[in-house]
Computed example of a mutant assay.
Amino acid sequence: MARKAASGSKPSAGDDLKIDPSLLPTLLQHAADVVVEAGSHAAELADEADGRGKRCREYFRKLTELFDLYTSPTNLAGGNPKYPLPAIVAKQLGSFCSYLSAGIIPDPIKHCARRGRPLGPDEGRDVRYAVIYVLAAKRRLIRDRHPLETIVKEYGLSSRKTVQTWIVKHREAIAQKSFADPGLIMDRMHEAARRYRVSGHEGLRGDRVERHADRHSDTRPVAPSLDRDSGRADRRH
């Protein structure tokens, strides 16, 4: 939301978080306000199943953007933040932690789950390294006449259609500087492929085990009622 400039444009993959120090307090407060707004929106429509997961995921995505600002080099001096995390956000997270420590999954977290097995942040990064490799080969920065087949083999995929889907989805988010070092592109792709093969196969089995365990766990409903004034996550019965 505030990468490179306060323009609100989506950052490119590989970009560093660059912030004008004079804008940081305003950006932090704005990011906190957006978090509260997203939480309130999720809470107001908590009983409506349609779009509930998307609203809860949006809340946590806004939290991620806030934490990116909070932990950016611009806000850290000797490892300590210059500007504190807004109290209302800390209270909301504290409420989630209270429920989790009691063995109860709050609705804002529970409703974030999606069908299938979506890519996590680490896998998403490794997928982008594959896309960078293919694009670099097409630009003849890397000597590989069949980059799609290379990715299928290295990542342990069943079809090149998967790679083509990755390219369509991620190519616009690849920063130009990602192509600066062809040798590094190759090294990163091979390392990413190794991680992907491990997490892809082992993670799928683990996901099935977790879903089986969840059916027998205590996940009593907790509505995402995030009070704007206190940051309190109220529980509804």
Rank of each mutant, 00 (worst) to 15 (best):
G103E: 01
S158F: 04
I105H: 13
E154T: 14
Y196C: 09
I142L: 13
D126K: 08
L226M: 15
S72M: 03
V34Q: 13
D15G: 07
G78N: 04
V89A: 06
L100A: 15
S9G: 08
T71P: 05
K138H: 10
S22L: 08
R125M: 09
K153F: 09
I88P: 10
Y59G: 05
I132C: 14
A180K: 14
D68Y: 03
T71A: 02
S178C: 14
I19L: 00
K10R: 15
R3H: 14
S159E: 06
S7H: 14
C112T: 15
N80T: 15
R117W: 11
R220V: 04
A223S: 12
S230P: 13
R205M: 07
I185G: 01
H111T: 03
L66Y: 04
C56V: 02
L226T: 14
P73I: 00
A42D: 02
D218W: 08
G14T: 00
R115Y: 02
A192F: 01
A130M: 09
G8Y: 02
S178I: 07
V134S: 00
L184A: 08
L17K: 10
T64A: 11
D218G: 07
A5F: 12
H170A: 04
A13T: 05
A175F: 01
G94P: 06
L27N: 00
L93E: 11
L119T: 08
Y133N: 10
S40H: 15
G124Y: 00
A90M: 14
S95Y: 06
S22I: 01
P147K: 12
T74I: 07
F60P: 12
D187N: 13
D207F: 10
G103T: 06
T150Q: 09
L85Q: 14
S98Y: 08
V168Q: 15
D15K: 13
R128N: 01
V89S: 08
E58C: 05
F96R: 10
R3N: 11
Q164Y: 08
M1C: 11
G200F: 01
H216P: 08
Y133D: 07
D122S: 15
A38E: 11
P81A: 01
R171G: 00
G183E: 01
P118L: 00
Q92S: 15
T64P: 03
A87H: 15
N80M: 14
H41G: 04
N80P: 09
V35P: 12
R128K: 11
A46M: 05
